[in-house]
């Protein structure tokens, strides 16, 4: 039998290849079971990246539904509160090109905002309470309402239903606790050096931009 195999090179080749594939298959199968990665389902991962404002600007009733929609193939550029940062993170996660924000769904505001009820004017209609996806408005019928600022995501959804227009979106101001140093001055963001020449910079020149304040050797942007 063995001799027969040896005498038939094609047969022996087939056997060898078959054996090899069986062996490797077994190894791979074993590895797949043994080293199985218990990753989060993709929806959870997407949901974790979304800003959780639950504002519905993407057209879905909340962030999780949008996460599900993204997992189902929807565009990732429909989240104005998250802005480009969220889009980039999503693109990174899903390994796709990062598109820019779809203006159709609104604009990204750099300043975070929270709702504020002018309490003298509130009539206690509870309409904003019903609209708030966060349960961040406190109050009862015919009682003055107030926003729990710490829980408010600035989604805007309570402004429209208010019959007396007593809800304002006020920007969150930096205080001593949230203050932080800025990155050092660059040409895009000169902090303490005046930029004399307007120069087109590329990313690699960040941090060197303020050099141009004392450069007058005629390097106007080409």
């Amino acid at each position: 039998m063995i001799e027969f195999v040896f005498q038939n090179p094609i047969l022996s080749a087939l056997l060898a290849l078959g054996g090899l594939s069986a062996a490797f298959g077994a190894v791979l199968g074993f590895a797949a079971v043994k080293f199985k990665v218990e990753g989060d389902p993709i929806v959870d991962q997407i949901d974790a990246l979304l800003p959780q404002t639950q504002c519905g600007q993407c057209g879905h009733p909340g962030c999780r539904p949008y996460a599900q929609a993204i997992a189902g193939g929807e565009d990732i550029n429909k989240c104005p509160p998250g802005g480009q940062a969220t889009i980039n993170a999503l693109a990174d996660l899903l390994d796709v090109e990062a598109p820019s924000l779809d203006a159709e769904h609104g604009e990204h505001l750099d300043v975070k905002r929270v709702a504020f009820i002018r309490e003298d004017e509130c009539i206690g209609c509870t309409k904003c309470i019903q609209a708030c996806p966060m349960d961040a408005i406190l109050g009862a019928a015919k009682q003055m309402h107030t926003v729990i600022a710490d829980e408010c995501t600035g989604c805007d959804l309570c402004v429209e239903p208010c019959p007396v227009d007593c809800i304002d979106m006020i920007p969150v101001e930096t205080d001593l606790k949230t203050w932080k140093w800025d990155l050092p001055a660059t040409n895009q963001n000169p902090v303490f050096h005046v930029v004399a020449n307007e120069v087109n910079l590329i990313a690699s020149d960040l941090g060197r931009g303020h050099a141009f304040g004392d450069q007058h050797d005629g390097n106007k942007a080409a």
């Binding site: 020449n197 120069v199 087109n200 590329i202 020149d205 050099a211 141009f212 450069q215 050797d217 390097n219 106007k220 942007a221 080409a222």
Partner: peptide, 11 residues
């Protein structure tokens, strides 16, 4: 190259 990249040459 600095000229082409519109950078201050002497710097």
């Amino acid at each position: 190259v600095m000229k082409l990249r519109a950078r201050p040459i002497m710097f």
